[in-house]
Design a protein around this nucleic acid. Structure first.
Length: 782
DNA sequence: CAGTGAGCGAGCTTCCGCTTGACTT
């Protein structure tokens, strides 16, 4: 055992640091927090000044046991967790659990894993900062109170009652998506006509080239645009003015968690969780620095390496040292920016992680490179017949600078500016050869729906959530069925084009596809209803500035200017009153929308939330005749569906006809559309619409599924509804709808299992159910 | 689970932030 035990949060970090510190030090890790509030209860004694009740979670028991043993065997324990609020609290919990003396235990911090930084840290230890710890406790307790008092209100007041949740972060994330969706629904596009004229001129080699110039203004109506084109008939086009201006472009800062997630989404199409998974791999293999960070700083050692790499490959002219500042006040900067550990490794093997590594490498290099220098040319072209000006603009890259390596991608709501082309050399008073002119109808666009990555960007701007929680938050709101990530087909839209060619104006109508979406976040009806409810009764917590406001107070606690229990009390009093008032006064929420009356029965048609999801109801329970119900299609919403679409939904179940002498019907069940044939069920393929699908499509589906099933079936005991099936992880037993794992020693002889064997295994598994909950993966069963 | 939708009440769920593997139907 070494004399000194150093505890850090991450095992990968521990390894590196141990190498730096040498044999007197043993470095180990605690894997993040080792204690948390009680799990099944509020875990906070509100009456007793918000006294927290901490426990060691089951999955941390072994870690703690090992740490205790190691601490006993060493002379001194050094707490080296991250230097931020959470890190300080982790150190405090460690000192409590390991029985260390807070008055003497050494606490060290560093923001980068480099030899000078670590050695300096060891030379300048400090003590635990209890103010910072208290700020973390206040944060933890407030989040627990908000989550564990709000969620039960939803269970009581929502008509859907399956594991609803609410919290400081997730509820606001959903709110952003809900409000964006409504902005889009309420948006009415306006159209205008944009004029483009095409000219010819000679380039430097004397070849004739075509270039474009833009009209003087966007015309509101087709008539105005036509008038303008008419007024240009027979005109002469002369270059009236030329301006040449230099311009610069600068590289983007090195990656933080959020910018890495955004850029990997834009350039590589990765989801935020995929990006984090790959980054974790790169970190563990020692290829990049820590991937959960809000800092844009680079260590001095890294800066030197980067300089060498740039000057070595591209020359001095391409190097420019830069220090980046964080734009975000909420940043805690406990780590470096995300960068390659060794700049000389410009690429690594493994195709999947390679693309992410390349992105990180290029971004890091580019961040220390020179500006790109451009030359922008703007030429005004006079129209002789109406004395208006057309504008031609072009851009020439004079020096590529950082663009040699990397250019940051753009979100779709900021790609308005078109790429500038190159203009041929023009001279004043030059008369240009006119080719043609168009006025094209263009529509204004609604704000863009969020992608996972653009939502992360927005949350970061609002200071909501942390690098370690962006990806999990996005998973949570989808798991709770508040939000769905999906594609949407666009709709066709007509637009008009006017042409001026050969002194004649002509008109044309063309069609374009609009509103198509790929991997965008849509709120579900549940998300809409829950958000409206929370907004109505808990506006302070739902406020976009709520987190920023309490963060200020946590800062005051951290600086010793405020007492944490006092802060919590000030928050809790009005919040808890809202909880009580809401429980007492609020009606059960159904999200009802009256759509009109059923043309057949004259009864009201209502869209609302039911126990199992969005539905349409005709008539009411008070009527003599029972009401009729229908569930909505996946892409429909109770908020936007109309009477006509609603009535369509009552055309199920449909009888399609006979196949092999037995009737085939189609319906929608709890888990989606299905066909029924010969007492068996077949889930429809995604692209099949139960309202229009025909027998000719269903018949092959039945044949195909039957064959696939036979392929997977090892044995069937029809009467007992027990099957032995092949799965991707080996054979398993299925009884009714439940699956049972076959013990390892019997896997190889699964085909020989008798009915008695199978029953015995089922009983055995039922008696000793697998301990850990499997990750809840929702997969369609057939 | 292949239907249902009211209301009652059993017994269940839930937060955010710090870390990785164990395990998978």
């Amino acid at each position: 055992m070494a004399k000194n035990l150093v505890i850090v949060e991450s095992p990968a970090k521990a390894k590196t640091i141990e190498k730096i510190l040498g044999t007197d030090f043993e470095v180990t890790s605690c894997f993040g927090h080792i204690r948390d509030l009680e799990k099944d209860d509020m875990g906070v004694d509100i009456q007793d000044n918000f006294r927290p009740k901490y426990i060691i979670p089951e999955d941390k028991e072994k870690v703690v046991k090992d740490l205790k043993k190691m601490a006993k065997g060493s002379e001194e324990v050094w707490l080296a967790t991250d230097e931020d609020r959470e890190g300080e609290a982790i150190s405090w919990h460690l000192s409590e659990v390991l029985g260390l003396d807070p008055a003497s235990t050494k606490r060290i911090v560093f923001h980068e894993i480099t030899k000078p930084a670590i050695e300096k840290a060891v030379k300048t230890p400090r003590l635990l900062d209890m103010n910072l710890v208290n700020a973390q406790q206040a944060r933890r307790i407030l989040d627990r109170i908000v989550g564990f008092e709000l969620s039960p209100v939803l269970w009581r007041k929502m008509s859907m009652r399956n594991s609803l949740s609410a919290g400081r972060v997730q509820s606001v994330a959903v709110r952003l998506i809900v409000e964006r969706e409504r902005e889009i629904n309420q948006f009415t596009p306006t159209s205008s006509f944009k004029v483009d004229a095409y000219f010819t001129a000679k380039d430097t080699s004397g070849k004739s080239v075509t270039f474009k110039a833009e009209g003087p203004t966007k015309f509101k109506s087709a008539e105005d645009a036509e008038k303008f084109l008419q007024s240009c008939i027979g005109a002469e086009y002369t270059v009236r003015d030329i301006q040449v201006k230099p311009a610069k472009k600068s590289p983007a800062a090195p990656f933080t968690t959020s910018t890495l997630q955004q850029e990997a989404s834009r350039k590589l199409g990765y989801s935020v969780s995929k990006t984090m998974l790959l980054a974790q791999k790169l970190y563990e293999s020692g290829n990049i620095t820590y991937m959960r960070t809000d800092s844009v700083n680079l260590s001095e050692t890294a800066m030197n390496d980067i300089q060498k790499a740039i000057t070595g490959s591209y020359g001095d002219k391409y190097y420019q040292a830069r220090k980046y500042k964080n734009k975000n006040d909420a940043a805690q900067e406990a780590h470096e920016a995300i960068r390659p550990t060794y700049m000389e490794n410009s690429s690594i093997d493994d195709s999947d992680t390679k693309r992410l590594y390349d992105l990180i490498w290029k971004r890091t290099i580019a961040s220390q490179m020179s500006d790109a220098e451009l030359e922008k040319t703007i030429a005004k072209i006079n129209i002789s017949t109406n004395n208006e000006d057309l504008t031609a603009s072009g851009e020439v890259l004079k020096f590529d600078g950082f663009l040699k390596v990397y250019l940051e991608g753009k979100d779709e709501d900021e790609d308005e500016e078109e790429k500038e082309g190159v203009l041929p050399p023009l001279s004043l008073k030059q008369v240009l050869g006119f080719k043609e002119m168009h006025a094209t109808e263009r529509f204004s666009r609604p704000p863009a729906r969020y992608t996972e990555a653009s939502l992360v960007k927005k949350l970061e701007e609002l200071g909501i959530g942390r690098p370690s929680t962006y990806a999990p938050t996005i998973t949570t709101v989808q798991k709770r069925n508040y939000v769905e990530k999906r594609d949407r087909e666009g709709v066709k839209r007509e637009y008009r084009i006017l042409h001026l060619q050969n002194d004649q104006v002509s008109k044309e109508t063309a069609t374009e596809n609009t509103g198509a979406e790929k991997a965008k976040l849509f709120p579900t009806d549940l998300g809409l209803v829950v958000t409206d409810f929370l907004n109505q009764y808990f506006d302070s917590v739902m406020d976009y500035g709520f987190t920023a406001k309490i963060e200020n107070e946590f800062d005051e606690i951290a600086h010793g200017k405020k007492q944490w229990s006092k802060m919590l009390n000030e928050f809790y009093k009005p919040f808890h009153k809202d909880i009580e008032d809401t429980l007492e006064n609020a009606e059960r929420v159904k999200g009802e929308h009256l759509l009109g009356t059923d043309p057949e029965s004259g009864k009201p048609v209502v869209a609302r939330m039911g126990r199992y999801g969005p539905m349409i109801q005709i008539g009411s329970v008070e009527d003599e005749e029972k009401p009729r119900f229908a569930r909505l299609k996946a892409d429909q919403s109770i908020e936007t569906i109309n009477l006509e679409e609603a009535m369509e939904l009552f055309k199920l179940p449909r009888i399609l006809g006979e196949f092999e002498g037995t009737e085939v019907t189609v319906n929608i069940g709890r888990f989606g559309p299905y066909a029924q044939h010969d007492k068996k069920f077949y889930s429809l393929k995604k692209e099949m619409d139960p309202y229009t699908v025909g027998l000719d499509e269903i018949a092959p589906l039945i044949v195909e599924k039957r064959a696939a099933k036979a392929e997977r079936t090892i044995k069937v005991f029809e009467k007992e509804k027990i099957q032995i099936l092949k799965g991707p992880y080996g054979p398993y037993i299925k009884q009714g709808l439940r699956n049972f794992k076959i013990p390892k020693e019997k896997i190889d002889t699964a085909a020989d299992l008798t009915l008695e064997d199978a029953k015995a295994i089922i009983e055995e598994v039922k008696a000793n159910p697998p301990k850990k909950k499997a990750a809840s993966r929702k997969k369609k069963s057939d």
